[in-house]
Write a protein that binds this DNA or RNA. Structure first.
Lengths: 223, 223
DNA sequence: TCAAAAGTGTTCAGGGTACACCCATGG
DNA sequence: CCATGGGTGTACCCTGAACACTTTTGA
C-alpha cells in the first residue's frame, strides 16, 4: 500500500455527526461536552477519527453506533471541512455527516456516559471548531430533501399520527402548514399507510396512527 | 501542531476535479490520460494531493489553475470518497469538486502539456478509480442547481445569445425546452441583460447578445 | 427568392393555496 | 357540558405547458 505516493503529506481525517432526533416532539441535536483538549468543556458534535482499515462512511457509522447503539440509519455526507487551522490541536480534515434517528430506539445510557445531551434546535449553544457551520449545512440539507424524499419517517416512531408528522414538517421547514392541504398531500402518497391503531395519548377523541411502508413507495414521494 | 491526537492514523488526501466547459456549444469534460501508475494510460479526472499548508478547497483551486490557468471559478464540493481500496496504489481519501469554466478563457497549452483533453459528455470513456461516480454526482449536482442559481453563465462567454443559453439548459437537463416559454422566463430575471451587440455568426438575421449582470441579481434567479 | 435562425402572445388545464366547521371523547 | 385535538371539501387563482407564424438577411 505504500508503493506510490510516498512523498505526499498525510492527514488525520475525522468524521463529525450532526444527529437529529425528536425529543418529545421537539427537533433536537445530540451534542457532547468535550472532555479533552482542544476546546475542552465546550459543546461540540460527536466525532471520531477515521481508522486505516475502515472507509470514511464506516467511521461515521461506527461513531454513531458507539454513541446511540443504532445502526442502519439514514446517514448522508453534508460536506468536508478542510481549512488548515480549523482544529487548533492539529491539522484535521473532517467529513460532516447528517444522521436522522428514531429517538425512542436509541440507547440513553451510552449517551450519558459520553457526556452527551439532546438539545432543542432553538437552543443550540455556540459550538467549537466549525461545527456551527456543519449544523447549518445539515439542516439545510434535510430541509431540501424533506418534501421530496421519505426521510421524515427516520425521525418518527414506527407508528405516528398525522399531527406529529405535520409538526415535524413545520419545525424543519420553519413555517406553519395548512392542516387540510397537508393531509391531502399525505393521502396522495401510497407509502403512508393508515393503520387500525389509535393514539389516545394526545387527544380525547383519539387520532389514527399511520406507518411508512417502504414497499409501497413508488419513488414519487412528495409532500 | 502535534500536541494532541498523536496516535491517530494518517491519510493521503486528494482532490479530483470534474471540469465542465462548453467546447463549440457542446458540454464537455476535461479529462487526462494518467501518465503514472496506478491506472496508467487510463482516462481519469484531474487530481492532486492536498498539501500540509493549504486547505482542501485551496488544493482544488490549485489543481484547476495548474491545468487551465484559471482562478476565481465556480467550484463546489460534490462529495468525499473514502472507500478503503478505492485507489489500488495506496489508501487515499479523495474530495471531488465540480468546476464550471469559460472555455474561451482557458489555457490550451497547459491542457495539452498535461495530456488532458476535452471530451463531450456523451462520449466519456470508462474512467479509473471511482471517477465515473464522481462525474455522475457532479452532473446531478449542476442539474439540480441550474434552474435555481445563475451558474450557467460560468460556462458561457461574457456575451451570449438566448439560443446558446437555451441549448446549454437543454443539454444539462437532457430535455428539449419550448423556445417561447424559455424566453419568457429569461425575461423575468433582471440579471440577464440584453446588450446592443448582435451576433452575426450563427444566423443571417443576427441574434441579440445578452450578458449576466451579477449586480442586478436579486437572489430570486429562476429559469 | 429562399433557406435558416430570431423573435413574439395567447389559451387552457391542473395544482396549489386559502379558508371554517363538525366530531368524538375524557374529565 | 365543555374543552381539546381530530377530521373533512370547495372555490379560486395563478403558474406552467402547449402551440405557429412573421421577420430579417446573406447567399
Amino acid at each position: 500500500m505504500t508503493t506510490y505516493y510516498n512523498d505526499s503529506d498525510r492527514f488525520i481525517v475525522s468524521v463529525d455527526c450532526v444527529i437529529f432526533g425528536l425529543n418529545h416532539s421537539r427537533l433536537s441535536l445530540l451534542l457532547a461536552r468535550r472532555r479533552f483538549e482542544p476546546e475542552m468543556g465546550r459543546w461540540s458534535l460527536m466525532g471520531g477519527f477515521v481508522r486505516a482499515d475502515e472507509s470514511v462512511d464506516d467511521a461515521a457509522k461506527r461513531v454513531l453506533s458507539e454513541l446511540t447503539g443504532l445502526s442502519d440509519l439514514y446517514m448522508q455526507q453534508v460536506g468536508t471541512f478542510g481549512a488548515v487551522h480549523r482544529d487548533p490541536g492539529a491539522r484535521v480534515i473532517s467529513v460532516a455527516y447528517c444522521a436522522l434517528i428514531n429517538f425512542d430506539e436509541h440507547d440513553r445510557v451510552r449517551v450519558t456516559s459520553h457526556d452527551a445531551q439532546w438539545i432543542e434546535l432553538e437552543q443550540i449553544p455556540s459550538l467549537g471548531f466549525d461545527h456551527t457551520e456543519m449544523v447549518a449545512k445539515a439542516l439545510s440539507f434535510i430541509k431540501q430533501r424533506l418534501t421530496v424524499e421519505p426521510i421524515a419517517f427516520s425521525l418518527l416512531p414506527k407508528y405516528f399520527t398525522l399531527t406529529q408528522l405535520q409538526q415535524l414538517y413545520e419545525t424543519v421547514l420553519g413555517e406553519n402548514l395548512d392542516k387540510r392541504n397537508f393531509r391531502k398531500r399525505v393521502a396522495e402518497n401510497p407509502c403512508i399507510e393508515k393503520t387500525e391503531l389509535i393514539d389516545k395519548m394526545t387527544s380525547r377523541r383519539g387520532a389514527a396512527m399511520y406507518r411508512y411502508n417502504a414497499a409501497l413507495d413508488e419513488g414519487k414521494f412528495h409532500i
